[in-house]
């Protein structure tokens, strides 16, 4: 999707507050105020609108003119620029490099070169607009846990798969069959692409859906790297998806919300077998 960015630059805090309110009302996804040293009191306010919606641009410009008339120093002319999808969707790639995690895992962005050496296990990932680049502590915690579990020949259900990174790691660590679900169809498409990039074949399934979409079977490992509150909401389905002696890996838990997840696990008579932490993110492994 292409966007038009509208920016009003070099204004004071009072004008910025009024314009932010306007941009919140008419812009796509909110307003942004930025400021740079040494003049932290001079601000720029921005928003974006869909490039297919020129009427909104006209409305915003008319409202800005009215606001300008009401301010003692007026307002500078708003500046607009077209932002194509490739401009914003690709810019973050520059700072995504090859990363080593756990003992043998190597995350290689699909656009980077890397010569693997034994016993490297290379996960080739292009997360696109899906979550799961491997750079975030929540993903790193899950990867470390997966690497330590005896996954060979174990079935695995990945709920909220994002880029598919955990399912791919599990497949490379010997888990089979694997089912990955996500409620976001972009994530499902990205996961399929990442399975193909990694030349993974065999018992791999990807579908749009949540924890209840188990594919009609129980799983020896269920992994969900989402957010604490969502994990609690999904707990019944996650527990239902587990085989009797299965492991449930939960991640995406910021430490201050760990309590609600522990309470939910307890209410299903699940015991925490392992707890890991990176920065203020916690991952738990639970079983019956």
């Amino acid at each position: 999707m292409d966007f038009i960015e509208i920016a009003v630059k070099n204004i004071d805090g009072e004008a910025a507050e009024t314009i932010s309110e306007l941009f919140n009302r008419y812009g796509h996804g909110g307003a942004v105020v930025d400021t740079y040293p040494p003049n932290f009191d001079r601000l720029t306010v921005r928003t974006v609108i869909s490039a297919d919606d020129p009427d909104v641009l006209g409305q915003i410009k008319a409202m800005l003119a009215l606001i300008g008339q009401a301010l003692p120093n007026g307002l500078p002319e708003p500046q607009t620029q077209l932002i194509g999808e490739s401009d914003w969707a690709e810019s973050w790639k520059e700072h995504f490099h090859v990363v080593r995690l756990g003992q043998h895992l190597v995350i290689k962005p699909s656009w980077r070169e890397y010569q693997p050496e034994p016993p490297d296990i290379v996960l080739e990932i292009d997360p696109g607009m899906a979550f799961g680049s491997g750079l975030h502590p929540t993903t790193q915690l899950c990867l470390e846990i997966l690497e330590q579990l005896p996954l060979q020949g174990q079935s695995l259900f990945d709920v909220g798969t994002g880029s598919g990174i955990l399912a791919i790691a599990a497949a490379k660590l010997g888990a089979t069959p694997i089912r990955a679900v996500d409620i976001d169809d972009i994530a499902v498409r990205v996961t399929r692409e990442n399975f193909a990039i990694n030349r993974l074949t065999g018992a791999l399934e990807v579908a749009v859906g949540s924890a209840s979409e188990t594919g009609g079977q129980k799983w020896q490992v269920v992994v969900a790297n989402i957010l604490a509150q969502t994990l609690v909401e999904l707990m019944n389905d996650l527990v239902e998806a587990m085989a009797p002696a299965g492991n449930l890996i939960l991640s995406g838990i910021i430490v201050e919300h760990e309590g609600i997840v522990l309470t939910a696990l307890e209410s299903y008579h699940l015991k925490v077998i392992q707890r890991r932490m990176i920065e203020d993110w916690v991952a738990l492994v639970a079983g019956r």
Binding site: M1, G29, V32, A89, W92, M129
Partner: peptide, 12 residues
């Protein structure tokens, strides 16, 4: 999510 305005604000 990384789409605008977050992506365009933080990306640069």
């Amino acid at each position: 999510n990384p789409a605008p305005p977050v992506g365009t604000a933080l990306g640069p």
